[in-house]
């Protein structure tokens, strides 16, 4: 049975990247604890609109935990403390206590400028992806699915890497604002498969160069990224990227 809880929500308001930003507070009364966090924010916005105030801006899209759009830093953890490692949309109010103060902040990183309130510009990830996160293939008739044999373990691992939805929680959690978990997952998902191998060296160099250029920090292996990743990407991917990158540079 759902019970109702009341709490104070402390949310970040910021008018664009140049604005200093500040917190605003509101007491939320009798919210059913089977409400999702984003539904609770919808309720908050209804109340704000009814009061004639500006609603709180945040990113969201599918609300099914697969699109990677939601991006809230809740009580000091990206996506909040969800049940089994998931995105903000899969966080439910039953994870909070009655009378608690819930602090909601945006991803804070120089490479992710705030657009408005808790909505940040994550197009830097798209730029990294565009720099080399693809395979150059001849288009035309699709070949037979079994023409290229792929060991099951490799296919599974590539799939695990590919589950990275590019939400940016890794960057948000990293004290260095490093995007290595994202970049390494994107490099790995292709490098592990035969179709991605021919361009593996070129891809690693191009994507790391773009990552550095966009102002992401240097990884110091604190593992904060993998601790908060909603898709359970691991730093084994980072080791793989380092290996590919160093090999590629030594071969130059």
């Amino acid at each position: 049975m759902a019970k109702n809880i009341s709490f104070t929500i402390r949310y970040w308001k910021q008018n664009g990247p140049k604005d200093a930003g500040h917190f605003e507070e509101r007491v939320m009364k009798d919210i059913p604890d089977d409400t999702s966090f984003l539904e609770m924010l919808d309720i908050l916005n209804e109340q704000l609109i009814n009061d004639g105030k500006e609603p709180f801006t945040f990113d969201h899209d599918c609300r099914e935990g697969i699109c990677g759009m939601c991006s809230l830093y809740i009580n000091g953890t990206p996506h909040g403390k969800t049940e089994r490692g998931a995105t903000t949309c899969q966080l439910y109010m039953r994870r909070f206590k009655d009378g608690e103060t819930i602090t909601v902040e945006p991803w804070r990183s120089a490479a992710f400028p705030v657009i408005k309130d808790c909505m940040v510009d994550r197009s830097a990830f798209d730029k990294i992806q565009a720099a080399g996160g693809y395979t150059t293939i001849r288009t035309g008739q699709a070949q037979d699915a079994n023409a290229i044999l792929i060991p099951k373990e490799d296919a599974d691992e590539a799939m695990d890497c590919a589950t990275c939805i590019g939400c940016g929680a890794c960057v948000a959690a990293c004290k260095n604002g490093s995007a290595m978990l994202f970049v390494s997952s994107k490099v790995s998902q292709l490098a592990l498969l035969p179709q991605g191998k021919p361009e593996a060296a070129k891809r690693a160099k191009a994507m790391v160069a773009k990552m550095d250029e966009l102002g992401f920090g240097n990884c110091t292996n604190t593992r904060a990224c993998e601790a908060v990743c909603p898709k359970n990407e691991t730093i084994a991917n980072i080791a793989r990227l380092n290996r590919h990158f160093i090999k590629a540079k030594l071969a130059d």
Partner: peptide, 27 residues
């Protein structure tokens, strides 16, 4: 470089995940 990448605005609340060792953040 890492301080610069982190940006000017600091988190009001941060929770250190269990698997993050203290030493790794204070090298």
């Amino acid at each position: 470089e890492n301080r610069k990448a982190r940006g000017q605005s600091k988190y009001a609340v941060t929770a250190r995940p269990e698997k993050v060792e203290w030493a790794s953040q204070n090298m």
